[in-house]
């Protein structure tokens, strides 16, 4: 059974997307590095991280792209297509942190035979803003 894909006609600007949380253990950092062929020591070698004056091993900032697109696609459905993603990093995320994400629809416009929904997101760890994202999702009409 294929889940339905939400149509833009049923959405409006300021609609919130589902809030999401994603924790990062040291195993998560290792797994992400391995899955992306990124063997940089910053993501698993605590001594190396400390040698460059960091408190802990660091989450690959680009991993936040997967973190913020997954809940959007889960929400909008299998025919939704991410066509643009802009990430601005504001602070580092470390092993042991839990990222909380929230966002809302900031624009909807027609583009050819489909619609494009823009979603603005804020990703935080506690009170610390760690990234801002703007995602454009193409939806069938």
């Amino acid at each position: 059974m294929i889940r339905p894909t939400i149509r833009a006609a049923s959405l409006k600007v300021t609609d919130p997307m589902p809030t999401f949380h994603r924790s990062f253990t040291s195993v998560d950092l290792m797994a992400y590095g391995a899955a992306t062929w990124d063997w940089h020591r910053l993501h698993y070698d605590l001594d190396y991280a400390r040698s460059v004056k960091l408190a802990n091993v660091v989450v690959d900032g680009q991993a936040l792209g997967a973190v913020c697109t997954k809940p959007l696609l889960d929400w909008l459905g299998p025919r939704a297509f991410i066509q643009k993603l802009t990430l601005k990093y504001r602070a580092m995320v470390f092993a042991g942190d839990t990222v909380r994400g929230e966002g809302e629809i900031s624009a909807i416009h027609a583009e050819g035979d489909h619609d494009v929904v823009s979603v603005a997101q804020h990703l935080s760890v506690g009170d610390r803003l760690v990234a801002e994202a703007r995602v454009e999702v193409r939806l069938p009409r």
Binding site: A35, T36, W37, D38, W39, H40, R41, L42, D45, Y48, Q62, A63, G65, A66, T69, K70, L73, I82, L85
Partner: peptide, 22 residues
């Protein structure tokens, strides 16, 4: 998944440097 294509260094084929990067 959408970001995999931009994230993977699957094209890599060299030993890691001192930071581990390939």
């Amino acid at each position: 998944p959408p970001t995999l294509v931009c994230e993977t260094c699957q094209y890599a084929h060299r030993p890691p440097d001192e930071s581990g990067c390939i």
